[in-house]
Simulated assay, not measured.
Amino acid sequence: MGLFGKKRGDSPGYEDNAALDGFGGYQPSDSSGYTPPVPELAAPVEPEPQPAKQPMSRSGRRAMYGFFATLGVIAVATLANNGSDRSSSSTPTSRTPIVYTPSPQVVAPPVTDGWQSVAGKDGVYAYDVPPNWTPKPGTIHGWEKGTQVPGIRMVASAFVGDGYCPQDKESRIGGSGVTNVKVSEPSAAAQKAIDDLAVSAYNPENGPLTAKITKEPAQPAEFTLGTGKKVPASIVLAEVVTPPGPCGARRALVGVLAPELGEASAALAVYSGQDTPGGADREQILKILKTYRGVPEADRKTITPPPSTLR
Rank of each mutant, 00 (worst) to 15 (best):
A108T: 08
A43D: 12
T112K: 11
V99T: 11
V118N: 03
E144K: 08
G163I: 01
P39S: 00
P49G: 03
M56R: 15
T78K: 14
P28Y: 01
G142E: 02
D113I: 07
G120S: 13
G151P: 07
G163S: 12
E144T: 11
A156Q: 12
E144M: 10
R62A: 15
W115K: 05
P150T: 09
A42T: 13
Q50I: 08
K136W: 06
M154G: 05
A156R: 04
Q148L: 10
P109G: 11
P135D: 00
D162Y: 10
P92W: 06
G151M: 04
A80Y: 05
N132W: 04
V106K: 05
I152V: 15
G163W: 03
S31C: 09
A42P: 00
R95E: 11
G142A: 05
Y127C: 08
A63N: 10
W115M: 06
A75Y: 06
S59P: 00
S88Y: 07
F67K: 00
M64D: 05
Y125K: 03
V73G: 08
V124W: 03
S87P: 13
P28A: 09
P97L: 04
S29C: 07
K136R: 14
Q167A: 15
D162M: 06
S157R: 01
Q167K: 12
M56W: 01
T93N: 13
P135C: 03
S157F: 01
P55R: 08
R153Q: 14
T134Q: 14
K145M: 12
G142C: 03
P110E: 09
L71H: 03
T78L: 06
Q54R: 15
T112A: 09
M64T: 08
K53R: 12
A69D: 09
V38N: 11
L41H: 09
P150N: 05
V129W: 04
H141Y: 08
Q27V: 13
P102T: 03
I140D: 13
D85C: 12
G120H: 02
P28Q: 07
P130A: 05
F68H: 14
D85M: 07
D122K: 02
T93Q: 11
P97Y: 03
R95T: 15
P47W: 01
V129R: 03
Y125F: 15
K53Q: 13
W115F: 03
T139E: 13
A108D: 02
L41S: 07
G33Q: 00
T91D: 14
V124K: 02
N82S: 14
W133E: 01
P130E: 05
S103L: 01
R153F: 08
V107Q: 14
D168A: 14
S32W: 05
S94T: 13
F67W: 10
D168H: 11
M56L: 13
S29R: 07
P51K: 07
R86D: 14
P36F: 02
A126T: 08
Q54K: 14
T147Y: 00
I74G: 01
P131Q: 12
I74N: 13
A43V: 12
A156D: 09
V76P: 00
N82P: 00
V118D: 01
G123Y: 01
A77N: 10
V38D: 12
G151T: 04
Y164V: 11
P37I: 01
S87Q: 10
P36H: 01
Y127M: 09
G138F: 05
A75H: 08
P135V: 06
D122E: 14
S89Q: 12
Q54D: 12
